[in-house]
Write a protein that binds this DNA or RNA. Structure first.
Length: 134
DNA sequence: TTTCTAACA
DNA sequence: TGTTAGGA
């Protein structure tokens, strides 16, 4: 339950997502227009993406490389979304949480997001990010 | 400085 | 998709 919350918690702005996914802001926004993703927004209308959103975008990028059009990809993604809301299917391999608490994760990301802005934007984050994917 | 929407070369 | 205008 805590894991799901962590992965769907809106944490990063589009700039970070661009680095994480290697997609342009234009593409990311366009995919949203086409209904492939639904990031949340801040009160000032800025998009905030979660780990799930990022993985989704990476999947989308993959499908596109394989030659699928956006409509087709949307349908495939819709199926994954069928088991909507908390319905973590009993067959779904729920990734077990790393050795960091919710609070630590948030703190870690917050710190990185800030420092990343002053150094090597990508390497830092991507390196740490690998700890959350297994 | 970063992100947003809308629109067009 | 890229890019830019114009604003928040």
């Amino acid at each position: 339950m805590a894991d799901q919350f962590r992965r769907s918690n809106p944490l990063f702005p589009i700039g970070i997502v661009q680095d994480l996914t290697q997609l342009t802001g234009r593409q990311i926004r366009y995919y949203e227009e086409q209904g492939l993703i639904s990031p949340s927004r801040t009160e000032s209308k800025r998009r905030l993406y979660s780990f799930n959103d990022v993985e989704r975008l990476l999947a989308i990028k993959d499908y596109i490389d394989q030659g699928f059009n956006l409509a087709a990809i949307r349908h495939m993604l819709e199926q994954e979304g069928e088991k909507e809301a908390e319905t973590t299917a009993p067959t779904a391999p729920v990734n077990e949480a790393p050795k960091v608490s919710e609070k630590e994760l948030h703190q870690l990301l917050k710190t990185q997001l800030q420092e990343a802005g002053r150094f090597n934007k990508t390497s830092l984050i991507q390196g740490e990010l690998s700890r959350f994917y297994r």
